[in-house]
Simulated scan of single mutants.
Amino acid sequence: MTGPDGRAVTAFTPEHEKELHFIAVRRDTAGFQHVHPVRDGEGTWSVGLALEPGDWRFFADIHPAGHDGTLTLGIDVAVAGPYDPRPLPEATGTARVGAYTVTLDGGLLPGEASELTLTVSRDGRPVTDLQPYLAAYGHLVALRVGDLGYLHVHPAGEPGDGTTAPGPGIVFTAAAPSAGTYRLYLDFQHEDTVRTAGFTVRTGTAAATPRPAAEPPAAHPGHRRSGHAHH
């Protein structure tokens, strides 16, 4: 990673415990990974990724030391091989991750901040002992379907400061940069494992269906940048 002077940048201000947040998403949004590369003394970052064939977009969130705020850099990458595009999932407001169910309440509005609550349960029971993951109970990435306009949002407050609770609900405030359809990805940690739940949301309409009274058991086992989109 080089700066305006062409030299490698080696001094960064950590954001949510990491100097670099790296997001990889396939153009059909079927593939998504949020990882944290390691930097060597020469300023080169490295991380291992398993990427299916297709066109991908990479995003890097960084805060160079001395710079006023976080920057997001993006690049397109093609992965060779037989490409099998997948249809966009329905906007159901509920996501299953193994034995976990995550329900999304609230609407994503274009140009207007709104509240989104993601509620985690396991086998029909609310999860009230979420673990902090990178100084937050949840990390939310929103990507605009089509051009992959990008938002990375964290909940207000930090674990232990008295303003947040370890589940079952995680509250975010975000604004969509424009009308459209978005994919939301929530990273949360429970029992020492980080899981990702994905949702399809259309702006200007209810983002979630009403939560059922009881969930049946599953069949198979901060800082905010809500006003800026990057693509």
Rank of each mutant, 00 (worst) to 15 (best):
E112M: 10
V47F: 04
R225H: 14
I170W: 00
E52V: 04
A135V: 12
S46E: 13
A78P: 02
P53A: 04
I23D: 01
G66P: 10
R57K: 12
M1D: 07
D61P: 01
G106K: 05
L108Y: 15
G222E: 01
V201Y: 00
A229D: 10
L109N: 08
H36S: 10
H190V: 14
T164I: 14
T117P: 02
P64T: 03
H34K: 02
A208F: 01
V47E: 06
G149W: 01
G124Y: 04
G111H: 08
E115K: 13
T2G: 14
Y182F: 15
P89N: 09
A99T: 10
P126V: 00
G149Q: 11
T173N: 14
H36E: 13
G138E: 02
G227C: 07
V97D: 01
P217V: 13
E19W: 09
V25N: 02
P168K: 02
R57E: 04
A91P: 12
H16N: 13
G3K: 12
R39C: 08
E15R: 14
D40M: 06
Y83I: 11
I75R: 15
H34N: 05
R96S: 09
T10H: 06
L104E: 01
A60F: 01
L151E: 00
A156I: 09
R96Q: 12
L118Y: 00
D84E: 14
Y133E: 14
R27L: 05
D161K: 08
V47M: 04
A213P: 03
G48C: 08
Y185H: 15
P85E: 13
L20F: 03
A30P: 03
A207V: 06
R57F: 04
A213Q: 10
T164C: 08
R144Y: 13
G106Q: 03
A213E: 10
V120E: 00
L130Q: 04
A95C: 05
A219W: 04
A78D: 13
L88G: 06
L130V: 06
T13W: 11
R7H: 14
D55P: 04
A65D: 08
A208Q: 06
G222M: 06
H21S: 10
G98W: 04
G93F: 00
R86W: 08
Q33V: 08
L109S: 10
L88F: 09
P217C: 05
L109P: 01
A24I: 02
R202Y: 13
L118Q: 03
A8G: 05
D129Q: 03
G204Y: 07
Y185G: 03
D129H: 06
F32A: 12
P82C: 04
A91M: 07
G69A: 05
G54D: 00
H34C: 12
P217G: 08
L134I: 11
G111L: 12
T101N: 12
A218D: 11
V97R: 10
Y182C: 11
A60G: 06
T193Q: 14
H21N: 03
K18D: 07
I23N: 04
R86V: 04
S178A: 15
R224H: 10
G107A: 15
G227H: 14
R7A: 15
P87Y: 01
A214P: 02
F22K: 02
Q131N: 03
G157L: 12
A24L: 07
D5N: 15
P110T: 10
D161N: 09
Y150S: 01
A50S: 14
D76V: 02
